[in-house]
Write a protein that binds this DNA or RNA. Structure first.
Length: 550
RNA sequence: GGCGACGUAGCUCAGUUGGUGAGAGCGCUCGACUCAUAAUCGAGAGGUCGACAGUUCGAAUCUGUCCGUCGCUACCA
């Protein structure tokens, strides 16, 4: 009955601040899903961490004259503080920079090496003689051979949009030092992803219920192109050390091989931290476990093709059961990007909005089917006209009346069919929202939960307890008790989305276990309520905000 | 260039395998109510479903072309 559920969340890259698009794309949907899973009684392990390796971090460190670890520390600490502020409840949020992660990565590497899935090859790579380092294609600029654009990057020309090979560039130069790069032979380990094309394709064909845009994409990739072998080491000093020394010094494991291993290493780290070293096996060596990966669509190939191949090559570890990747949140039609100043960083979002307000607005706009365009005005609209008006106001009006007229939850003997009907509507919305969250249709689930609130609002307008208080006080008491019982159901449906205001209601009405509506015990004292949410002053907000965010 | 996706009411989006008069939320108009954060409830207006041409008894839903937007293209992760 209790299912072990691994909620695996894409690892934020510790190279800069993350924006609310990342929040809406991965961290928040994962948190909503995990909170629901915990509530229904499943054994949830939600893991992620800061991805600390990769070239952009070392380049940034060089540019600022600090160490890569300084960059990593800065952003990892920022992320950790923000998770607490926005209420992302990890079971383990770690980093890929721990000795533990290095050991797990090395063990997996050795296992795959032993199994024959890793081999050594030599290739020519561009080398910056001045900076004394090998260069990824994107750190080489030159003149585009197609359009003569002078600042084309080695991987792509921003002017004509064509994909390039760095060797195509006319008069190439290093973006790090400006020096002319030279080709130099280098030896690296390759993971033989091609060994797994058939197995991965066959496995993908058995997946049911995946989002079409994810499933179609990776099926076509596996069946038409197949998986290609990729170098999983680099000529860098910043990365997990190799567990074998036969490549010589200056070689490290590359970020995209080790980052996904973080899901496994974080699970093992979690187990060790709670003094139960083998506990992770409940999720990873258990066919009955369920693994759900929350990532952005840019990460789909890594999680649906490469990571499964790595797992297959390492032995018999649990493969992903679903990868409900989200599309992008865009701002004014442009992809959110903190580096280009488009959209809001998480810090900016938290500065402008209450955590539950921001969570509500983003959840209502999760890009589950297609890219979704949002703005500061749209977030404010969702908060003021939906969250505050429908839900916050409902709680406030009912608690106010109960407090003023009774001071405590009244008894509700003698309910009519009308009373039972509104409770049935709440129960139905609670059940439906649960099913939708189970299918990771979180936008729909939020809408369904709000339908429960609207049903109670309609019920109040139909019964008019404020009039009954004078004409028929006993009936008024039953209506108010019924409305409050309804609220106690709706708040369960909303609890995965709104953890902060849910905690306030736990205090006011008593905690509720499970995914169910529980009556508020008659006699429960009801204090004069403080509004759960405050309205956003849109004019002030838009005056302050960058016009580009409006 | 190649591959893929998208373009549905003012805004953000749903629309299973083609089939009774095209939907939701918000906004807007009108009405009701006044307990509540000028909140709530009801009713209504509003769309030739990007354009054109096809397939079909019948298409927002299938095919082709075009226009527009976007993503991926394996060294951004």
């Amino acid at each position: 009955m209790s299912t072990p559920v691994l909620v695996a969340v894409g690892w934020p890259y510790a190279s800069g601040s993350r924006h609310v698009g990342h929040l809406a794309g991965a961290y928040l949907p994962a948190d909503v899903f995990a909170r629901h899973q915990r509530r229904v009684g499943n054994e949830v392990l939600m893991v992620s961490g800061s991805d600390v390796h990769g070239t952009p971090i070392t380049v940034r460190a060089d540019a600022e004259g600090v160490t890569p670890q300084d960059i990593v520390d800065r952003y990892h600490n920022e992320f950790v503080a923000q998770w607490a502020e926005i209420g992302i409840a990890w079971d383990n949020y770690t980093t890929t920079g721990t000795p533990h992660h290095a050991r797990v990565t090395q063990e997996m590497f050795l296992q795959q090496l032993e199994n024959g899935h890793i081999d050594k090859r030599t290739s020519d790579q561009f080398y910056d003689p001045e900076a004394d380092r090998f260069l990824p294609d994107r750190y080489i600029e030159g003149t585009c051979p197609h359009c003569d654009y002078a600042e084309a990057r080695g991987d792509q020309c921003d002017n004509c949009g064509r994909t390039l090979d760095a060797t195509d560039l006319v008069s190439p130069r290093s973006t790090i030092s400006g020096a002319t790069p030279v080709l130099r032979a280098t030896e690296h380990f390759y993971f033989r992803y091609s060994d797994f094309t058939e197995r991965v394709a066959a496995w993908l064909r058995t997946r049911k219920g995946w989002r079409p845009h994810v499933h179609n994409f990776v099926l076509a990739w596996a069946e038409e192109d197949g998986l290609l072998d990729r170098a999983i080491t680099r000529d860098i000093e910043w990365g997990v050390e190799l567990p074998v020394d036969d490549l010589g010094p200056g070689k490290r494991i590359y970020v995209w091989y080790d980052a996904v291993i973080g899901y496994l290493s974080a699970s093992q780290e979690w187990a060790a931290q709670r003094g139960d070293d083998d506990r992770w096996r409940l999720w990873w060596e258990n066919d009955d476990a369920r693994h759900v990966y929350f990532i952005g669509k840019d990460n789909v190939p890594f999680h649906c093709l490469f990571w499964p191949a790595q797992l297959m090559g390492a032995g018999d570890l649990h493969l992903p059961d679903d990868v409900p990747a989200n599309q992008y949140v865009t701002f004014k039609g442009g992809k959110a990007s903190s580096s280009r100043g488009v959209g809001l960083t998480i810090a900016e979002g938290l500065e402008l909005f209450q955590p539950d307000g921001l969570r509500y607005a983003l959840a209502a706009n999760f890009p589950e089917q297609a890219d979704t365009d949002i703005s500061v005005a749209e977030i404010a609209r969702r908060i003021n006209e939906e969250l505050v008006a429908t839900w916050g106001n409902l709680v406030n009006r009912v608690l106010s009346m109960v407090h003023k007229n009774h001071g405590a939850q009244p008894a509700s003997d003698g309910r009519t069919a009308q009373d039972e009907a509104v409770l049935a509507a709440v129960d139905a919305s609670l059940a439906t929202a649960g099913e939708q969250i189970e299918r990771v249709e979180l936008r729909n689930a939020l809408r369904t939960a709000m339908d429960g609130a609207q049903a109670i609002n309609a019920y109040l307008n139909a019964t008019e307890p404020w009039k009954l208080a004078k004409s028929d006080p006993e009936r008024s008491a039953v209506v108010l008790a019924t409305a409050l019982d309804g609220i106690n159901g709706v708040r369960v449906a909303l609890s995965p989305f709104l953890p902060f205001s849910s905690a306030i209601l736990d205090d006011a009405l008593g905690a509720v276990d499970g995914w169910q509506r529980v009556p508020v015990a008659p006699g429960t004292p009801i204090a004069k309520p403080v509004p759960l949410f405050t309205k956003v002053d849109v004019d002030e907000l838009l005056a302050d905000a960058d016009p580009a965010d409006g």
